[in-house]
């Protein structure tokens, strides 16, 4: 799959933003006033910034409001609905903390649940696609949720939780890679089933339909960067989890915590780039690109 920067930024930052909102909603850290204001600004910058960046890959962003209508069937629509409910609920809850010094726990709980639901619905957009066997796995939502919670705990300053959740995210990520590497072969979809010509012998793509490229090849047959996949995976895991955990284990200062956050975000971006770049869409079979 083509790793569109807008979608990589969107999933990473909205994940971290909604993860932070989850912790804030549950009262970790239990802050009020200007401290709470600072936390909420960071959370909204990440979550809303991510959502806005996701509209950059739309052909007609001016019609984006229509995307709220199909929540009964579409995970993308459900994501939009959950995100709005989470953001509105958490804004009310945040206003209570910042302006009235009051913690309206029930609002916080609802906001936290919808924040996690937003991350889950995002992950289901990818998980539901049978056409991309690497994503079509329960480990995909597990990966998105563990990243969101780990990033959220890190930004919320919950050191113990952050260390544990970063480790969980790393394990889930490695499992997803391990399973994903055999996913296309395990899916049973081959050029033989794609063409129905398998009974006659071995099938090979002989000539593409056009001499030039097309939308399908640009969007689905991305093969650049596979060569360095293993190196990038190691870099991603070290930056995303290993280095932040080591930094958090050191005596806490704000500089060290900031370094941990920067390292985690860089690692998460690398991992998410791989998530898209390594995903094999079955339509590539027709073009002999698998």
């Amino acid at each position: 799959m083509h790793p569109a920067p807008s979608v990589i930024f969107f999933t990473v930052f909205s994940g971290i933003g909604f993860g932070l909102l989850t912790f804030l909603g549950l009262g970790f850290p239990n802050v009020t006033g200007w401290t709470a204001f600072a936390f909420f600004v960071i959370a909204y910058l990440c979550a809303v910034g991510g959502l806005i960046s996701s509209t950059f890959h739309l052909g007609h962003p001016e019609r984006a409001l229509k995307a709220f209508t199909q929540w009964r069937s579409s995970w993308l629509s459900r994501e939009g609905v959950c995100a709005v409910v989470a953001l509105v609920t958490m804004a009310l809850y945040g206003a209570g903390l910042v302006f009235f010094g009051q913690r309206w726990g029930i609002l916080g709980l609802i906001g936290a649940i919808f924040s996690l639901l937003t991350v889950f619905t995002t992950s289901m957009i990818y998980t539901q696609l049978k056409t991309i066997p690497r994503w079509n796995s329960p480990l995909t939502p597990a990966m998105f949720l563990s990243y969101a919670l780990a990033g959220g705990a890190l930004l919320a300053g919950q050191v113990t939780w952050a260390m544990a959740l970063l480790a969980v995210a790393a394990v889930v990520q490695v499992l997803l890679w391990a399973q994903g590497d055999g996913a296309l072969a395990g899916s049973g979809t081959t050029l033989a089933t794609a063409t129905g010509l398998g009974a006659g012998g071995s099938v090979r793509a002989f000539e593409p339909p056009h001499t030039g490229t097309n939308y399908l090849l640009r969007e689905f047959a991305f093969v650049v960067g596979r060569k360095h996949s293993m190196k990038l995976r190691v870099i991603a895991i070290v930056l995303m989890a290993v280095l932040p955990i080591a930094l958090l284990a050191a005596p806490f200062t704000h500089v060290v915590a900031l370094l941990a956050v920067v390292s985690h975000v860089a690692g998460a971006l690398a991992a998410r780039w791989l998530f898209f770049a390594e995903a094999e869409h079955v339509v590539g079979l027709y073009y002999g690109k698998r």
Binding site: L58, R63, A67, L129, K130, T131, A194, Y215, E219, F220
Partner: peptide, 26 residues
């Protein structure tokens, strides 16, 4: 007139039957 050009339907199609028009963005 309702298509926002998100491209998800083309992702979901195993046959490559849908193509986003690069000029009209639908």
């Amino acid at each position: 007139s309702d298509c926002i050009g998100c491209g998800l339907c083309a992702w979901a199609c195993p046959y490559g039957a849908r193509e986003m028009d690069q000029v009209e963005k639908v």
